[in-house]
């Protein structure tokens, strides 16, 4: 168990009160995505970092809250599409929900794909969010990242539940 009493992970999701632990699982996923982006080096260093998502996915509203947040020198902008293939090259980050990576195109240069399918990174996704019991962790396909010109820091690699390289 991660914490001494194992209560902690549960409390993180259920605690009431004003501290940072009072978050829903969706909020935690969005916070994890935001924090992952801080450890990613993109080949393009434009002023905006565009996060794209499908309208139908439950995480969309949470992702919209990242609008305007800073990642290094870049500011996040969130773009919402009806279909995932509409998420074209202007997206630096594409959140695809539970879509299988097999049904998706390979990430474009400078792009990362984030998904929640349990086999997402095994099937060519860049970053996977995986639930285990009450907690959320992430997995990484460093090979896919490398082929799209994106680099993950060693801190991120260490924190990942799984790294494919």
């Amino acid at each position: 168990m991660r914490c001494l009493t194992v209560l902690c992970g549960v409390l993180m999701l259920t605690a009431t009160g004003g501290n940072a632990a009072a978050q829903s699982k969706g909020d935690v996923k969005v916070a994890i995505i935001y924090n992952i982006l801080r450890f990613v080096t993109f080949p393009n260093n434009t002023a905006t970092l565009t996060v794209c998502a499908r309208r139908q996915d439950s995480l969309v509203e949470g992702l919209k809250s990242l609008e305007g947040r800073a990642v290094s020198t870049r500011k996040i902008t969130v773009a919402v599409y009806d279909k995932i293939d509409q998420a074209a090259n202007e997206c630096d980050v594409v959140y695809v929900g539970y879509a299988s990576a097999r049904t998706l195109q390979k990430p474009a240069r400078g792009q990362i794909l984030i998904g929640e399918d349990p086999s997402f990174v095994d099937q060519g996704g860049t970053v996977g969010l995986v639930s285990f019991g009450p907690q959320v962790r992430f997995t990484i396909n460093a090979r896919v990242a490398q082929s799209s010109g994106v680099r993950f820091s060693s801190q991120l690699m260490q924190l990942a539940a799984k790294v494919i390289s």
């Binding site: 914490c3 009493t5 209560l7 902690c8 409390l11 993180m12 632990a21 994890i32």
Partner: peptide, 17 residues
């Protein structure tokens, strides 16, 4: 990110904090 993945201090109160 590390705090999000695990949790904050648990030892002091036997719960996350």
């Amino acid at each position: 990110l590390e705090d999000l993945l695990s949790q904050e201090v648990t030892t002091a109160s036997k719960k996350a904090r």
